[in-house]
Design a protein around this nucleic acid. Structure first.
Lengths: 316, 316
DNA sequence: TACTTGTTATAACTTAAGGTTATAGTATTG
DNA sequence: CAATACTATAACCTTAAGTTATAACAAGTA
C-alpha cells in the first residue's frame, strides 16, 4: 500500500473540488504543495489522474475510479471521527433516536419508559422530525435508530416491525348528526334513513362534504392519505391542517370536523364513544411501523442494548 | 477532520496487530515513532484508544469503535489501489469473470462469443472455480462479475437471472435395459411390464441400484443433489464422481451408468435418443442461474458494458 | 530470586519530506 | 489585448516525523 496516506487525502480533496487552488485553500496548504503531491501520487501509481485545464483539473477515467474509493474511505473515516466526537461530548452510553411526534408519544414512549429504567446511564437524544429526515440521518450515521413507517426502499437499513397501524376517519357523534341534517336540507334525496345506520357508501360523501382535518404536509401519513384520495377520486371541500395528531383528536372530539387519525391511538375515545369511526368502503389499509437502523455502520453498545431490548419487549 | 491522516493508518495497524512493536515492523518505522504517533492521536482526539499491557496493547471500547471505521476505510482504499494496479497491468478495458466450468461452456460462452466481437479491446480473464469461491471473490472485489446459481444469501451482490436449469437423471437406452434384466433376475417380483413404459415409482429404484455418476464434491450442483437424496431417503449403491459435466454426459452415452446432468445442456442428446431421461416422481426442481456482481463497488466501464450487454441479450 | 525476553515510554538528536515564496507558462474572458 | 484564473517549476526552508539509545515494567524461566 502506498506509504503516504496523506497523498490520498490531498487527491480526494482535489478530485472533489476539481481545482487544485481551491483544494489548497480547503486544506490550508499552498497551491504548489498540492501540485507537487498530485504529481507525486501520479508517479507512484504510474497513472495520470487528472487532465489539467486552464480552469482547473478534470479527473481521468482512471482517476475517477480511484476517486470513488477514496471518497468512500474518507467518508468512513469522518464518520469514525464523528463517533469519537460524540463520545467525548456525551459519553459512551448515548443513543440518538429519530421519530415523528405522533409515533413518539404512542409507540416510542412506552418502550423508552422501561428502557431508561433498565439502563439509566445511557443518555438519550430524541430527534422529533419527519420520517424522511429520520431515514436520511440514519443513512448518514447521524442517528442510531429511528421509529418509522416501513419505507418502500430500505437501502442500507434494517427494519424491525413493532406495530401495525391503521388510518381511519373519526368525528364526534354530534358533528356527524349536524352534517346529515345540513346536507339533507340542500340535497334532499335519500337521507331519511335512521341516524344510527350509515352504510359505507354514504360515508365517502361525508368525507367529501365535511371539514376534513389532517396532519400537515410533507408528512409520511399525510402523503399516504393524499395518495388514497387521489386514487379514489375523492375531492374534499375543506381541509384543516394541524401539525400534531393530539390536536387532531381534540378537534374531532369538540366537533370541529372529521379527523384522520391512527385507530390504535384512540382506542379509549372509541370505547367511551367520544369519537366515532366513519368506516370507508375501501379502508386506507394497515401500515407497518418499526425501528430502522443502519446495517452497515458499527453498532455502539447502547444501540445494541436498545435493539435487544426492543426485540425482547416487542408486543407484536 | 484530523489533519494527519497517517496517524489513522498507524492506529489501524496497531489495532490490527494489537502490538506496537509488530506494527512498527509492518510499517517499516521504529517502535518509538509509533508510540509517539498513537500518543499524539489520543491527545488530538482527547480519548484513550489503547490500554497498554506488558505484552502489547488492547483496544479500549472507544478505540474499538474507531477501529471499525478505520478498518473499513483502509480496506476501501486498498481496493482502490488494487483497481489502479489492475489498470496498470491490463489496461482499463479489463473484465474478470468467475464461473464454474459447467456453466462456462453452456451459458457463458455463447454470451462471451458475441461480447468479444462487439468489444474486442476489453481483455477478459475467466476464473473457472467453485460458486463459493466466485461469490467470495466478488465480495472482496477480486472479480467483476460471476455466473452462478442463485445463492440463498446475496449480501452485497446484485443478481441478474439469465437462465433456468433443471437437474435430471439420464442414461443410455442400453444401460437401462441391462439394468432391468439384471434386477428382475434377483428380485423376481413385478417386473414383467413391457420395456418401454417405466412409471416414476420404478425410476427411484433405478437410481438406487444403478451406477450413479455425479459431479465431484464441494460443488453447488452436487450439494443440491446430495440434499435431494437425503430429503427423499435415497441411498445409492455406487457413485462415480467426475469433475466435469461433459465427461458425465459422455460416460452416460457409452452406457457406464446413470448421470445427473443439467437438462438444458443435453437437448441434442435427448432428441437424438442417445440419452434418455429417467423422470422422477419428485423432480429435483429448477434452479436460477445468473450473473452476480457487487452492488457496492464502483463499476468499471468494462463491467457496465458487460452488464448492459447481458441485459440486452438475455434470452429469458 | 535473578536472568531473559518482550513489551511500551521517554529523551535527545537528526533529517528529509513536505512545506514555503516567487515566478513562469497557458488558456479563458470581457 | 490586458486581466484573470488556473497549474507547474525552482530554490529554499523548517519542523514534524523519523532515528538511536535507554529506561521502566511485566511475565516467564532457570
Amino acid at each position: 500500500m502506498e506509504q503516504n496516506i496523506s497523498l490520498y487525502k490531498i487527491f480526494n480533496t482535489v478530485a472533489s473540488t476539481g481545482n487544485i487552488s481551491k483544494a489548497a485553500k480547503e486544506l490550508f496548504i499552498s497551491q504548489p504543495a498540492i501540485s507537487k503531491s498530485i504529481g507525486r501520487l501520479e508517479d507512484d501509481l504510474g497513472i495520470t489522474l487528472f487532465v489539467r485545464t486552464s480552469r482547473g483539473v478534470r479527473l481521468t477515467v482512471e482517476g475517477n475510479m480511484l476517486y470513488e474509493y477514496t471518497r468512500s474511505a474518507f467518508e468512513t473515516l469522518q464518520q469514525g471521527e464523528e463517533t469519537i466526537r460524540r463520545i467525548n461530548e456525551l459519553g459512551i452510553g448515548h443513543l440518538r433516536i429519530g421519530v415523528s411526534t405522533t409515533l413518539c408519544k404512542y409507540i416510542l414512549l412506552p418502550y423508552l419508559k422501561e428502557f431508561v429504567q433498565q439502563y439509566p446511564h445511557i443518555k438519550i437524544t430524541i430527534h422529533s422530525q419527519s420520517t424522511f429526515h429520520t431515514l436520511e440521518m440514519l443513512e448518514n450515521n447521524k442517528l442510531d435508530i429511528g421509529l418509522v413507517g416501513k419505507p418502500n426502499s430500505l437501502k442500507t437499513l434494517e427494519f424491525y416491525k413493532v406495530a401495525m397501524i391503521e388510518d381511519i376517519f373519526v368525528s364526534s357523534e354530534v358533528y356527524l348528526e349536524n352534517l346529515r341534517v345540513r346536507e339533507s336540507s340542500h340535497s334532499k334525496n335519500e337521507l331519511q334513513n335512521d341516524s344510527n345506520h350509515y352504510s359505507p357508501m354514504d360515508n365517502i360523501d361525508i368525507i367529501k362534504t365535511a371539514n376534513v382535518m389532517l396532519l400537515d404536509e410533507k408528512n409520511m401519513t399525510r402523503l399516504y392519505i393524499d395518495d388514497y384520495f387521489t386514487r379514489n377520486n375523492i375531492v374534499t371541500k375543506q381541509i384543516l391542517e394541524v401539525s400534531d395528531m393530539d390536536l387532531l383528536i381534540e378537534f374531532a372530539k369538540i366537533g370541529l370536523g372529521v379527523s384522520c387519525v391512527i385507530k390504535e391511538f384512540i382506542q379509549t375515545e372509541l370505547n367511551e364513544g367520544t369519537l366515532r369511526e366513519i368506516p370507508l368502503e375501501k379502508p386506507l389499509g394497515q401500515r407497518e411501523v418499526g425501528f430502522a437502523y443502519s446495517v452497515v455502520s458499527p453498532k455502539p453498545d447502547s444501540l445494541q442494548k436498545f435493539i435487544d431490548f426492543i426485540v425482547a419487549h416487542s408486543f407484536i
